[in-house]
Design a protein around this nucleic acid. Structure first.
Length: 381
DNA sequence: TCTGGGGTCCTTCCGCCA
DNA sequence: TCTGTGGCGGAAGGACCC
């Protein structure tokens, strides 16, 4: 028997948070809706049973959109857009608060539905996963003359199962590796299924902009554009030595491999957390001296939250750190490694306080965060 | 009226030590 | 004792992702 073809799927839920909200508020189907902001703007149920929703024009604050329905995207609203800016573009658009508990619940449901068909799953956050289909029953089957027929049917079965379990649609890309599957799942969205083989890479992948590659962000994208490299094909044709020269050894080589669709990272079914953190952006900027009391309260609360998170999940952290963002958006961090790991709010607060003393607090602050890293399991010393 | 919150990983620099 | 070298952990920042 020949070596089996490696088949990795990337499954991405379609406009996940928004779609979960539409299940709860079906009257919003087809309307522009964004999710985000604080918890203040809950829909109101009127005496006649209908619901009243908040509009973007009524929003004030510093929130951003977490996601947007497809009709809202047509109006130029996208995830990450400031809600005040969004309100200028679409004042009548409906605004819903985020409800992470509910999204986590649906997340568990869709992942369980996938696991019934194919159990080798890598979690990539609340709304997407990788699935190793290589050894799944039927994946290597040829249907007629189509060597991808078996894996395509399997992916379709996964989609059906997710829909049955949640009422939600997803998009799946199936290819020989994670890198290509991530790109492929985005090619036919929403509710799509895309299968790509290594031989398809020049035709299907090379015409795409480099930014479609997971790992090429705004900075690298701009730098590549400045070198005249706009498509994945441009990048694939570039001299590896030139890429190394401009981007360093590791990243330069990775760029070259990625452009050729090469990626042998395994599907990892278990992850240990590296850090746990809590941070908050203030409603208005706070000053270290003038707003000492308010700042101290927030600081203590963040430490307590990190401690609670650590204890709930059974970890302790040896390194405690803080993060500050000033009114000019400059961000600084300070870390302190302790002799012993801790999950106690008071010890965290003390260490974080020492970190804070090392920062010049001359400017007003817009954000404060507390983090625990170098985590050890089970310890609560 | 700019620009959330929770993460991971990588690079660079620095001090310490063998 | 001086100089060099290399490893390593910790700290800081940055890029990127969902």
């Amino acid at each position: 028997m020949a070596t089996p073809t490696r088949w990795i799927a990337h499954l991405d839920m379609d406009a996940f948070y928004a779609s979960v909200e539409l299940l709860r508020y079906p009257e919003l189907k087809g309307l522009p809706v964004v999710i985000g902001g604080g918890r203040r703007h809950q829909p109101e149920t009127l005496p006649d049973g209908t619901r009243r929703f908040m509009r973007l024009r009524d929003y004030t604050g510093r929130g951003v959109a977490t996601t947007a329905t497809y009709p809202a995207r047509d109006l130029g609203l996208h995830s990450g857009i400031g809600l005040m800016k969004a309100a200028q573009r679409a004042p009548d658009c409906i605004l819903l608060p985020t409800d992470f508990d509910r999204y986590r619940d649906y997340s568990r449901r869709f992942k369980a539905a996938v696991a019934e068909v194919a159990p080798v799953i890598e979690d990539r956050g609340i709304d997407e996963i990788y699935i190793d289909l290589t050894a799944a029953p039927g994946a290597q089957d040829t249907v007629g003359f189509d060597a991808t027929g078996g894996v395509r049917a399997l992916a379709q079965e996964i989609r059906n199962n997710v829909r049955r379990a949640t009422g939600l649609t997803c998009s799946i890309g199936v290819t020989p590796n994670k890198l290509l599957s991530k790109i492929a799942s985005d090619l036919d969205k929403p509710d799509g299924l895309t299968v790509i083989t290594a031989a398809d890479v020049p035709l299907r992948i090379w015409p795409l902009p480099v930014r479609r590659i997971n790992g090429i962000g705004p900075k690298a994208g701009d730098k590549l554009a400045a070198l005249g490299l706009r498509t994945v094909g441009d990048l694939a044709a570039a001299e590896p030595a030139a890429l190394v020269e401009h981007f360093g050894r590791a990243y330069g080589r990775w760029l070259h491999d990625a452009a050729h669709g090469r990626d042998d990272r395994p599907v990892v079914t278990h992850h240990e957390p590296v850090s746990m953190s809590r941070e908050t952006t203030f409603e208005r900027n706070l000053h270290a001296v003038r707003d000492r009391g308010a700042l101290g309260e927030i600081f203590t609360r963040l430490c307590a939250q990190v401690a609670a998170d650590l204890q709930r999940k059974g970890y302790a952290g040896r390194t405690i750190g803080i993060k500050l963002r000033f009114d000019d958006f400059r961000t600084v961090t300070r870390d302190l490694t302790l002799p012993q790991p801790t999950a106690e709010a008071e010890a965290i607060r003390h260490a974080a306080g020492l970190c804070l003393k090392r920062v010049d607090l001359g400017r007003p602050l817009r954000l404060l965060g507390v983090r625990a890293s170098s985590l050890v399991r089970g310890g609560r010393l």
